[in-house]
């Protein structure tokens, strides 16, 4: 059984207008998303800005009001607040935020910030709590003298590691990492990502890794879901997505990964332009008449793509994959 099963998740925001301020339409931020996260794995959720990936992540932590659909954890639907309370859900599912500065309360000392989930869920005595905080700081590679400082006294990378320490404090089973490194420079990105991997090995945590950076996702994730306009367009293993992409949106994202090989610059440019040309010409083939993605169809046991059945099979043949 999977750790978490997300089924047909929808988050719609109403648009009000007119004299009576009635609901006339809705923004479909997340529109029918289903996937499962296994224990101990890192699941990548990739997509452009506004594709609904953060909203999905927030729904999984319980921060977003879900319109319909279910998120099953230990046999209960945690989109309902009373089920979250019953399970002490946030003891097991925590979150790392994108903006490390605004996600740490500027008026609280580091000790109080990291101890917050401990105080709510574990009720340790004072010395045990302080010891746990010191151990957490040590695990993320910070010194003990950080204990009584404030968040603004740290660098971006250090702050993000404090955020990681807070998320790990209760030894959760799943951590939602919402673009945890996109605000950091490259050397610090690697540092934080390696800490996250180390913690995953040591504590057996699953990550839902939300990112728009396919390079980072490749480094972190076993399974990847590609999201576009509130829907999933492709699900697969790392190999499926990077070596046999089927949907044009995935291909565009892959083409957008910057290459540092100066000699092959012209070739990369040509391949990017080729993908873009395909997208322009064949948009109607990949999206339905409303410009939305089709429902997912299975191509191989691990690989699914949002295309009509016949198109998917034809593309899969071209890619030389085994039929499901």
């Amino acid at each position: 059984m999977s750790l978490i099963e997300i089924k047909d998740l929808k988050v719609h925001y109403p648009i009000r207008s007119g004299f009576w301020n009635r609901v006339t339409d809705s923004v479909r931020a997340v529109d029918g998303v289903s996937f499962n996260i296994e224990a101990g794995e890192t699941y990548g959720l990739v997509g452009e800005s506004g594709s609904g990936k953060s909203t999905t992540g927030k729904s999984v932590v319980g921060l977003e009001k879900v319109t319909s659909g279910s998120i099953m954890y230990k046999g209960l639907d945690i989109t309902k607040a009373e089920n979250r309370r019953k399970l002490d859900y946030n003891h097991d599912v925590q979150m790392i935020f994108q903006d490390s500065l605004s996600s740490l309360n500027p008026r609280k000392r580091i000790e109080d910030i990291i101890a917050e989930p401990l105080r709510n869920f574990e009720h340790l005595n004072k010395d045990d709590e302080k010891l746990r905080v010191l151990q957490l700081l040590n695990i993320v590679g910070l010194d003990a003298d950080a204990l009584y400082k404030y968040p603004h006294q740290f660098s971006g990378g250090q702050r993000q590691r404090i955020g990681v320490a807070r998320a790990v404090a209760t030894n959760p089973k799943l951590i939602i990492a919402d673009e945890p490194v996109s605000a950091l420079d490259l050397s610090v990105q690697a540092q934080v990502l390696n800490f996250m991997k180390k913690i995953q090995r040591e504590f057996g945590i699953s990550y839902l890794f939300i990112s728009h950076d396919l390079g980072v996702v490749r480094h972190m994730c076993n399974n990847i879901a590609i999201m576009n306009r509130g829907r999933l367009v492709e699900i697969g293993t790392r190999d499926d997505i990077y070596n046999h992409p089927l949907h044009i949106y995935t291909k565009r994202l892959l083409a957008a990964i910057p290459e540092t090989d100066v000699n092959a610059r012209e070739a990369h440019r040509a391949s990017r332009l080729a993908v873009e040309a395909v997208y322009r010409e064949q948009q109607s083939k990949y999206y339905d008449e409303h410009g939305e993605a089709y429902p997912l169809v299975q191509v191989t046991p691990t690989h699914a793509v949002a295309l009509p059945q016949n198109v998917a099979q034809q593309l899969a043949r071209q890619e030389g994959e085994v039929q499901a």
Binding site: A144, Y148, K149, N171
Partner: peptide
């Protein structure tokens, strides 16, 4: 659970007083 943290960090209860003092010296 607590053992899990003990195993992966080289800080134990014995260091608590010393480290608290160090932190207080650096406290804001």
């Amino acid at each position: 659970m607590a053992e899990n943290f003990e195993r992966h960090s080289d800080i134990s209860a014995a260091d608590l007083a010393r480290l608290t003092q160090e932190a207080q010296a650096e406290a804001t």
